[in-house]
């Protein structure tokens, strides 16, 4: 039987959504409350790892395949660099210039609101995508590797 007992499966199927939502909250409110892209990304990845522990690797791979997660990883990295580059070419500014805040939000008292701080929430989202997808990939690759070591042949065609 793949995965753990029915108790663990039931509870993790309830808890996974809460952990995922908490990760998204940490990422989206990173410019207002403690947290940010890195911590939120790790939390999002850990919700998938919880599923992997409870239900086995094949179940997770059906939900979020390896190619999809590596694409998400690349999308996060590209988005981060693109935001930085837009700041460079927008006006006469430099790399990582906070163009949204300086151009549109600076004279509008947006402090402590969700839509504030210009590029910082966008960077947080990019880093959250990147870190979540890449940590998921690391744990997935290590798990495949370790299974491969133990029972040669049976788990090889999965990856």
């Amino acid at each position: 039987m793949k995965g753990m007992t029915i108790i663990v499966k039931t509870i993790s199927s309830w808890v996974k959504l809460l952990i995922f939502l908490f990760g998204i909250y940490i990422v989206l409110f990173g410019h207002l409350t403690p947290g940010g892209g890195f911590a939120g990304g790790v939390i999002i990845a850990s919700s998938y790892v919880l599923l992997m522990l409870a239900f086995g690797r094949e179940f997770v791979e059906k939900n979020l395949s390896l190619t999809a997660s590596s694409r998400l990883d690349c999308v996060g990295a590209l988005m981060f660099v693109a935001i930085a580059l837009v700041g460079m070419f927008y006006g006469a500014a430099s790399f990582f210039w906070n163009f949204i805040h300086q151009q549109y939000l600076a004279d509008r008292a947006t402090e402590f609101k969700l839509v504030s701080a210009g590029i910082i929430p966008l960077c947080n989202i990019a880093i959250g995508l990147k870190v979540g997808a890449s940590l998921f990939l690391v744990i997935f690759a290590l798990s495949v590797f370790c299974n491969d070591f133990r029972c040669k042949g049976s788990a090889r065609e999965l990856m």
Binding site: G30, H31, G37, N98, I120
Partner: peptide, 15 residues
């Protein structure tokens, strides 16, 4: 005032 981020840590590491 410069970055608009209430969380000063986010303002430093991302701006």
């Amino acid at each position: 005032q410069k970055t608009g981020a209430a969380n000063i840590v986010a303002a430093i590491i991302l701006d």
